[in-house]
């Protein structure tokens, strides 16, 4: 079942279109990556899901029900631009947010204590928010987002402001939430974390969806059939022979460790490459070069933008 499904959602602001005919579906219990350059319409989509704003046309479904205000308490949203009441005490602040989400007093207190212990921040309880560093405030913010144990979590750039250590901690927590059955929408420009965390991604550019699929499918869809080979043997001879049937994109020779990046032409299989290399020396390592989300992002968006120019 889909936790969120949109059908032909369109939202226009005076002068420009934020979303046009956007249809996405995010499966329950998965991490759904919402990607796109700045100003593509991601925040608008998130705001529609959060019912902060309504679409001009199109439908949104939450767990197969038409989106309605009772769903709000089942969503946790960590916005990109975020802040806390600077003069409130940390403990009070977290409890306040928990109450707003409809938790009872005792339940709110119990869960807040749980999370404070988990993040090892019990000592901050009576500190004022403005005494905390930015990273610390981000932790508190994360807690306020997940405290009411919503079915759907929406994280917009959750890692900004975190050091690598805390970034890892956060990734671990996000995966743990997923394992507990939470559905997560992750919007970020950090492509590394997309590869690590997401099950499915959608790429939006200029209000339109330009890429949609399971992350593994997309990665293999963008494979370039390029292989990295490290071997022992006559480097020059290799190069000469191979270039007839293969495209060598990169090569280097260092202390007997010869390195090649080879792109297979159509109709050739990896085994063909291996067998043609076997005759010239020992293969130390052979692996396919997988495309990075980063490259895919740039390539797809640039292609789309140049298409637009031509039209």
């Amino acid at each position: 079942m889909e936790i969120i499904k949109t059908q032909n959602v369109t939202k226009k602001y005076s002068g420009y279109t934020a979303l046009s005919e956007l249809s996405i579906s995010a499966e329950e219990g998965t991490i759904f990556g919402l990607l796109g350059p700045n100003g593509a319409g991601k925040t608008t989509l998130i705001r529609i899901i959060n019912q902060i704003t309504a679409p001009d046309s199109g439908e949104v479904y939450f767990s197969d029900e038409r989106l309605q205000s009772s769903h709000i308490s089942q969503i946790g949203y960590l916005p990109e631009e975020r802040g806390l009441y600077q003069k409130m005490k940390v403990g009070e602040l977290v409890l306040y947010f928990a109450h707003l989400k409809g938790l009872s007093r005792s339940e709110a207190l119990k869960r807040t204590k749980y999370w404070f212990e988990k993040f090892e921040i019990q000592l901050w309880w009576d500190k004022k928010v403005n005494e905390l560093s930015k990273g610390m405030q981000q932790k508190v913010q994360f807690i306020t987002t997940v405290l009411h144990e919503p079915k759907l979590l929406i994280f917009d750039e959750p890692f900004s402001g975190f050091d690598p250590l805390n970034t890892n901690l956060l990734k671990k927590e996000i995966l743990e939430l997923k394992n507990k059955g939470c559905s997560i929408i992750l919007s970020t420009h950090n492509m590394e974390s997309v590869e690590e965390l997401c099950d499915h991604i959608v790429l939006i550019n200029k209000s339109e969806k330009i890429l949609d699929g399971a992350i593994n499918d997309i990665l293999s869809q963008f494979k370039t059939n390029t292989f990295e080979v490290i071997f022992d043997g006559n480097f020059n001879l290799h190069q000469a022979t191979l270039s007839a049937n293969y495209e060598i994109t990169e090569s280097s020779a260092e202390k007997g460790n010869n390195f090649l990046k080879v792109k297979l032409k159509d109709n050739y299989l990896p085994n063909d490459l291996i067998s043609s290399m076997l005759q010239y020396g020992q293969i130390a390592s052979f692996r396919e070069i997988m495309p990075r989300m980063n490259e895919i992002f740039i390539r797809v968006v640039e292609e789309k933008n140049s298409e637009r120019h031509e039209n």
Partner: peptide, 13 residues
């Protein structure tokens, strides 16, 4: 200005 509103607005109208 301190963006609390962004956080609040998903919990309250």
């Amino acid at each position: 200005t301190n963006r609390v509103v962004e956080v609040l607005i998903s919990s309250v109208k």
